[in-house]
Computed example of a mutant assay.
Amino acid sequence: MHRVVCPGSFDPVTYGHLDIIGRAAALFDEVVVAVGTNTSKSGLFDVDERVEMVRGACAEWSNVEVDTFSGLLVDYCRDVGAGGVVKGLRSAGDFEYELPMAHMNTQLSGLETVFLPTAAQWGHVSSTLVREIAKLGGDVTAFLPEGVARRTVERAQQGRES
């Protein structure tokens, strides 16, 4: 497998995400980080902001590109010529959630999914928890790259002032 897709919402991109992306970049020739455009979710950042932050955070890896996608992941992977998907797992709960999707993607298109366990130091980190901490005025700098942390705190504070 030469090209894989690492999909997610990345709202915001965390060190846990970057752990998986960096390890995928070491394993595969090309990694496409596909930022989802799910209009039914209301996140902290719009898709263009998330793409910008992910691009900045992934700048050190020359074989990583960042794009957006909507619709079926299998269709996107076909369109970009990816032979597989990389997903990070923090816990058994993530595995239980991701495994049926992996099976469905294989049945729909033959697409393979590679699961990478998140490094232990990031196993408790999720974008949802980071957003909540930021909204409540907590320190998120241990979980996010510097520029992403600053923007997350600023955006979360705007939400508190509204």
Score class of each variant (00 low, 15 high):
72 L>R: 05
156 A>I: 00
119 A>M: 08
90 R>S: 13
38 N>P: 07
153 V>G: 05
71 G>E: 07
51 V>K: 00
136 L>T: 12
89 L>A: 01
114 V>G: 10
140 V>M: 07
114 V>K: 14
103 H>D: 12
136 L>C: 14
67 D>Q: 14
99 L>H: 09
84 G>H: 00
103 H>K: 09
91 S>N: 05
66 V>H: 00
126 S>A: 02
120 A>W: 12
60 E>A: 11
52 E>K: 09
101 M>W: 10
146 E>K: 07
155 R>I: 09
126 S>Q: 04
121 Q>W: 09
67 D>I: 07
67 D>N: 13
106 T>S: 13
41 K>R: 01
45 F>W: 09
32 V>F: 05
45 F>M: 08
148 V>P: 04
128 T>G: 12
77 C>Y: 07
143 F>A: 02
25 A>R: 03
153 V>C: 09
82 A>T: 01
34 A>C: 09
48 D>Q: 09
86 V>F: 01
123 G>Q: 13
48 D>W: 10
27 L>W: 04
101 M>A: 10
72 L>F: 14
77 C>H: 10
145 P>V: 04
130 V>W: 11
106 T>E: 15
142 A>H: 12
87 K>C: 12
124 H>M: 15
40 S>R: 10
31 V>S: 03
145 P>M: 00
65 E>L: 15
137 G>Q: 06
110 G>R: 04
151 R>K: 15
29 D>H: 12
85 V>G: 08
133 I>G: 06
30 E>T: 12
118 T>W: 07
69 F>T: 03
144 L>S: 03
32 V>R: 09
120 A>L: 06
105 N>K: 00
45 F>H: 04
79 D>Y: 13
156 A>K: 02
141 T>V: 08
82 A>E: 03
44 L>D: 11
137 G>S: 00
52 E>M: 05
151 R>G: 12
34 A>F: 03
133 I>L: 10
70 S>K: 04
65 E>P: 05
101 M>Y: 11
68 T>G: 00
140 V>D: 11
138 G>K: 02
69 F>M: 00
127 S>F: 01
44 L>G: 01
56 G>K: 06
68 T>C: 01
118 T>A: 06
85 V>P: 07
39 T>Q: 15
156 A>S: 10
87 K>E: 11
61 W>A: 01
140 V>H: 08
85 V>S: 00
115 F>Y: 03
135 K>V: 15
34 A>L: 08
86 V>T: 04
104 M>K: 14
73 L>N: 06
82 A>I: 04
58 C>M: 08
145 P>H: 02
100 P>E: 09
83 G>Y: 05
59 A>S: 15
